[in-house]
Simulated assay, not measured.
Amino acid sequence: MKNIAIVFEDAEALVIDKPAGLSIDRPRKGGPALEDHFEQLRLGFQRDPVPVHRLDTDTSGCLLLARNPKALSRFGRAFEERVVEKRYLGVLAGVPDQTEGTIELALSKISSAEKGWRMIAAKKGKPSVTHWRMLQDVGGHALLEFLPETGRTHQIRIHALAGLGTALLGDPVYGNGKGAPRTMLHSAALTVPRAGKPPVAATAPLPADFAALGFTDG
């Protein structure tokens, strides 16, 4: 079992660079899951660390794990209160008309027997806000920085499609799934404030599959 890179560690928090393809929960059909790595990630502690938030299976990058129940509660509250700063990088299956902007689209979940469930932009949905700017344009694809204010399920993926008119490269749900072996989304940085302590602050380097497309983070 391949070791997972740890990009932040202290007595109450771990931030890992989650590989693309690793599920937070064990998939119903089986396959790799985060719990396969708990023994490595205990780092001498008796408790398994617990993920505080979610990343899609395809999404790589910064994932915060709490090392005790009190920390889990505090970190969870920080996400609920929207004081966590999150920076994502994503590759669009095209190039947007503008170079930066803010997407404000309410989101709602729908499901059907043939397509399963997905998120859609809907006026009666939950408010969702994502700030974005284009960093690079290579070979007809654009590397974007996404700064989400809210943390809705699939928020960046549906905002790319419904707000920018172009899905993320490789996205099989909101795009055509072509051009990349996975949905090209990466959690590049995470900052979680803590009362009386320095914040949890971590960055995860640009993945190899982003670099293979000709992109750099900077």
Score class of each variant (00 low, 15 high):
Q46W: 15
Q46N: 13
R47M: 14
D48G: 07
V50A: 02
V50T: 13
V50I: 11
V50G: 00
P51H: 12
P51F: 09
P51D: 09
P51N: 07
V52H: 00
V52N: 00
H53Q: 04
H53P: 02
H53I: 07
H53T: 04
R54M: 10
R54N: 08
L55Y: 00
L55K: 05
L55I: 06
L55N: 05
L55R: 02
D56Q: 02
D56M: 02
T57S: 05
T57R: 14
T57Y: 08
D58I: 00
D58C: 01
T59C: 03
T59K: 03
T59V: 12
T59E: 05
S60H: 06
S60K: 00
S60Y: 11
G61A: 00
G61Y: 04
G61C: 08
C62P: 05
C62T: 00
L63W: 00
L63E: 00
L63S: 00
L63M: 03
L63P: 05
L64A: 11
L64P: 01
L65C: 03
A66N: 00
A66E: 03
A66G: 08
R67L: 13
R67T: 10
N68P: 04
N68E: 14
N68C: 12
P69Q: 09
P69R: 02
K70L: 15
K70G: 13
A71T: 09
A71G: 11
L72F: 13
S73H: 13
S73E: 15
R74N: 14
R74W: 11
R74S: 14
R74D: 15
F75V: 10
F75A: 07
F75S: 03
F75W: 06
F75P: 05
F75N: 01
G76E: 10
G76I: 12
G76N: 03
G76A: 07
R77S: 14
A78E: 10
A78T: 02
F79C: 06
F79Q: 06
E80K: 02
E80H: 08
E81I: 04
E81C: 09
E81S: 14
V83P: 03
V83R: 09
V83S: 06
V83E: 11
V83A: 02
V84M: 05
V84S: 05
V84L: 03
V84Q: 07
V84I: 09
E85L: 13
E85M: 12
E85I: 14
K86S: 12
R87S: 08
R87I: 12
Y88F: 08
Y88L: 01
G90S: 06
G90L: 01
G90I: 13
G90P: 02
V91D: 04
L92V: 10
L92T: 08
L92I: 09
A93F: 06
A93G: 15
A93T: 07
A93H: 06
A93D: 15
G94W: 05
G94Q: 04
V95D: 02
V95F: 07
V95M: 04
V95K: 07
P96Y: 09
P96R: 01
D97E: 15
D97R: 09
Q98I: 15
Q98D: 14
T99E: 12
T99D: 10
E100C: 09
E100V: 14
E100F: 12
E100Q: 13
E100R: 07
G101M: 01
G101D: 10
